[in-house]
Design a protein around this nucleic acid. Structure first.
Lengths: 220, 220
DNA sequence: CTAAATATGTTGTAATTGCAACGAAAGGGG
DNA sequence: CCCCTTTCGTTGCAATTACAACATATTTAG
């Protein structure tokens, strides 16, 4: 079984910290490990916590239930990924999502205050952790803002154009490759795959863009 | 003219810091102030920066231009509000939006590293600033995630139900008041106002919910 | 290379939505 | 109380999209 440090070196929260510096820091972060079996709830929506979760092994889902009892899977997390950090740092009293263990999983919990508040001088790299947390939150912010810009267009056509324009700007070229297949892009844009294909076909007919598989070219 | 400290006490970044402690900290944050006239660009998309902006007075817009030259207004900021923080902290090399001064504005720029890295012991409250930044980013994350959950529903009907379910859960009751008028809710859900009214009317007919003005009740 | 599996495009239909225009309701002064 | 403004619901219509089902193309595995 992999050691905790070994796994955490690959977690964004411990980026830039040497593996042998992690172990001694865990005490300071009040880390506690817990195992969950397959199909067990790690956290129930509506409860409170002051701990940030990290998946050490296994796989967990973030689930939201509406008032009529319909469940939506918001995310699926694997090794090294964080959960709950935004709610805990944002001081949400009742966390509105559940966390569910899809497979047998080892979860590490870190105390929020300890994680974001570097200790005076005791742990050399403790400061890196809070700094990494800032980066993680900022980058997630950027990602969410981008997707929101696309999703807030009224028509699928405009969503597609918004997404492709963005991709072109990032690539610095009117010709670029996207990291999605059609189904993936449809999901990202919250649309039906065949409707997406139709819209893309129409845009090609109108000579607004051209594409072959995942390679696109924006005309004019 | 209001002093900088006076304005900053009302900025979320300086929450919990006494007004007379702000002034001495500004040096440490490498704060620089600059005035912009009406209709002047504060920042052009595609450039780089390592500074976080704060609107001291006036009003600025965050603008995004697509590859075809269409502009979208992403946000409009007033006194005390931050801009650029996610991009700067997230280490984005080329910032993809422009910042535009709608009116004559005073802008304060803070050095990212200095803002995020508390100094050893020099400024008593410097640590609060980086902690506040974490909270700001986390809360914005929550807000963005919530809206995305609604926007990622395929139909307007489902967007509406998703939003109202969330509102009910937050209120802790099936009866609650929403902070939007119809046009506001339509904008939030990226839909047409009259289409929203129609959907709400239909949901009422189907006895899935009831409403009068901004007061809603979810049935069953 | 072939068969199977997967991904993409196409078609038809029903439903939803955007859009514009209008009328009713609610709210705010004077 | 009335006028004015704003908000909200309704209607008709055109356009878009979801959805299902199928055809074609591409990839993968054997």
């Amino acid at each position: 079984m992999k050691s905790i440090s070994e796994i955490l070196t690959r977690s964004p929260l411990f980026k830039g910290i040497a593996e042998n510096s992690i172990e001694p820091m865990l005490n300071c972060l009040r880390a506690r490990e817990k195992n969950y079996s397959k199909n067990e709830y790690i956290f129930h929506a509506g409860a409170s916590t002051a701990e940030i979760g990290i998946v050490l092994t296994g796989m967990v889902q973030i689930i939201k239930e509406d008032v009529w009892g319909n469940n939506t899977i918001l995310a699926q997390l694997t090794e090294g990924m964080l959960f709950g950090e935004a709610f805990v740092i944002g001081n949400t009293d009742k966390i509105p999502v559940s966390v569910y263990s899809l497979q047998a999983s080892r979860i590490l919990f870190l105390d929020k205050e300890k994680t974001v508040t570097p200790c005076k001088a005791a742990c050399e790299f403790h400061y890196n952790v809070s700094h990494n947390m800032l980066e993680i939150l900022a980058q997630k912010n950027i990602f969410l803002t981008e997707r929101m810009e696309h999703l807030s267009k009224r028509t699928l056509r405009d969503k597609v154009l918004s997404y492709l324009s963005d991709a072109a700007q990032k690539a610095g070229s009117r010709e670029f490759t996207i990291p999605f297949d059609r189904q993936g892009l449809a999901d990202y844009l919250a649309a039906d795959r065949s409707a997406l294909s139709a819209v893309l076909g129409k845009l090609k007919d109108e000579e607004i863009l051209d594409f072959k598989k995942n390679k696109f070219y924006l005309i004019n």
